[in-house]
């Protein structure tokens, strides 16, 4: 890649006022570095990934509203987690977390366990129990 060809496309980096470093060759064939504001092929890939996460969140929301799943399922997706990551954060076995996905089981959880989940998701217990209160 030539220094003059380092892409300067619009990307999500702009919001954070941040440019990444690329290695490129200058006119004399010597390696040097150049900052890049972004590159379309990766921005598209990233946007697709974000879209994918949004779809997963929406699907989880529907499951919770339909009472097929507990709010933990929804908040897990909101926090871009999966089961192993969530279990590791709350410090419980995966099968226990999975069990808490059942609405009947979730309703009976004690405050101590609920607080653990709330802390991990950075929300209050009220928000944890009612996904409509999530901002």
């Amino acid at each position: 890649m030539k220094k003059s060809e380092v892409p300067q496309d619009k990307s999500n980096l702009e919001s954070a006022n941040f440019r990444e470093l690329c290695y490129a060759v200058d006119e004399n064939g010597e390696y040097t570095t150049e900052n890049s504001t972004g590159w379309d092929p990766k921005t598209i890939a990233l946007n697709n990934a974000i879209q994918d996460i949004k779809e997963r969140i929406d699907a989880a929301k529907k499951r919770v509203v339909a009472n097929e799943s507990s709010p933990i399922d929804y908040y897990m997706e909101v926090n871009k987690m999966d089961l192993p990551i969530l279990a590791s954060y709350v410090g419980l076995w995966q099968w226990r977390v999975k069990r808490h996905f059942k609405p009947q089981v979730f309703k009976k959880l004690n405050t101590k366990i609920l607080q653990k989940y709330a802390d991990v998701f950075d929300i209050t217990i009220e928000q944890l129990q009612d996904i409509d209160k999530n901002i």
Binding site: V25, Y31, K42
Partner: peptide
């Protein structure tokens, strides 16, 4: 998309680290 992200995401210096290696 994920493959391209691994190749080009921040940290690779472009081209799946090939340019850093050239340097």
């Amino acid at each position: 998309g994920q493959l391209v992200r691994m190749q080009e995401e921040i940290g690779t210096g472009g081209g799946g680290f090939r340019f850093i290696y050239g340097a």
